[in-house]
């Protein structure tokens, strides 16, 4: 049994389901990658996992506890945090306030958490009084990651963090994620840009049209002809 166990999850937006019968596991201190083309349902899955989108059926367990019926704030308390697609930092708030939002449920953030995030992201420390809207795309991505860390999560869900970033910045994000992983935080990374994701993660899943079609060790999947064809450019 893993940290996160998803079984038979079906979910959508009220119409016909977008996700069908999804099974997925993320272990303790494990990095799992989820691949899938545009509109495969990756974002929908993450939204369902954090509880902002209700599931139609299926079971989601975090650390053995059934969380399907819990609201987002309870899941956050149990250690689930997200770096949403397109970052979605609060542009009108300062960097510091964004981090406070990450720990909103925990009294706006403990001093040691701010210290930890600012030492991980020195550039954020310099800009702590600056509005998040004035940051560059890469900086906003770092801020979104820092914001997620503020709640001391056990599992971080990341939705295409490399989107729109220069290769150098992508490498920086991945290096940070590896650091976070060694601290014992598990990672579920959604990516379209598969090469680096497969290199960094232990296991991977492939989602197509709302169904899990492949899963296995990242190394194996990187060799899989179908995956190579679809996500690794041949």
């Amino acid at each position: 049994m893993g940290l996160l166990d998803v079984a038979g999850l079906t979910s959508g937006y009220g119409g016909p389901p977008v996700l069908h019968d999804i099974d997925l596991t993320v272990g303790e201190s494990e990095w799992v990658t989820l691949l899938g083309a545009n509109a495969a349902g990756k974002t929908t899955l993450l939204k369902t996992l954090i509880g902002v989108l209700p599931a139609a059926s299926g079971a989601v367990r975090l650390n053995g506890r059934e969380i399907q019926a819990l609201p987002p704030e309870e899941r956050l308390r149990l250690g689930l945090a997200i770096v949403p697609e397109g970052r979605r930092v609060f542009t009108r708030m300062t960097v510091q306030e964004n981090l406070q939002m990450g720990a909103h449920l925990f009294g706006g953030g403990r001093a040691e958490d701010f210290d930890r995030v600012y030492s991980l992201f020195p550039r954020m420390a310099e800009r702590r009084r600056q509005k998040a809207g004035t940051l560059s795309g890469g900086e906003q991505q770092m801020l979104a990651l820092g914001r997620a860390l503020m709640s001391r999560p056990r599992l971080i869900l990341l939705d295409e963090p490399s989107m729109g970033l220069a290769p150098k910045l992508v490498a920086e994000v991945f290096a940070l994620l590896r650091g976070i992983l060694t601290e014992g935080v598990s990672i579920l990374l959604v990516e379209q840009n598969a090469k680096m994701a497969l290199k960094s993660s232990a296991r991977a899943y492939v989602l197509r049209l709302g169904r899990m079609v492949l899963s296995g060790s990242s190394a194996d999947l990187a060799e899989n002809p179908e995956v190579r064809q679809a996500y690794l450019g041949g």
Binding site: F90, E97, G102
Partner: peptide
Amino acid sequence: RIGRAWVAMREDELAARSFGI
């Protein structure tokens, strides 16, 4: 804290919900 929650909610309701508001 409430004031910050209002600002967050006004800016991005979904993101605000993701952070337990």
